[in-house]
């Protein structure tokens, strides 16, 4: 299936969550914090901490670690 990361088309081979998909492509940083602009990535990995939030299909604050990749998904990462 095809997904888009910051507009770039990427082939995804398996259904996995957005967080592990990005990590395997060396995308450790998923967002910048809103007050200090510091980089953040996955921390708890199980949907508890909300540190890995990214914009998916135009909807902000989606947890990368518990959101499954879907065909045509558009993921926006800030780094």
């Amino acid at each position: 299936m095809k997904v888009f990361v910051n507009g770039a088309e990427i082939e995804a081979t398996e259904s996995e969550n957005v967080g592990t998909f990005l990590l395997k492509r060396r995308q450790q940083v998923l967002r910048m914090t809103r007050f200090e602009g510091n980089p953040r990535g996955m921390f708890c990995g199980i949907g508890v901490c909300f540190d890995c939030i990214v914009t998916i299909d135009g909807i902000a604050n989606q947890r990368a670690c518990i959101t499954q990749l879907r065909e045509g998904m558009r993921i926006e990462v800030t780094s």
Partner: peptide
Amino acid sequence: PGSMTAGG
């Protein structure tokens, strides 16, 4: 980034 929980 790079600091995770053990469970994570």
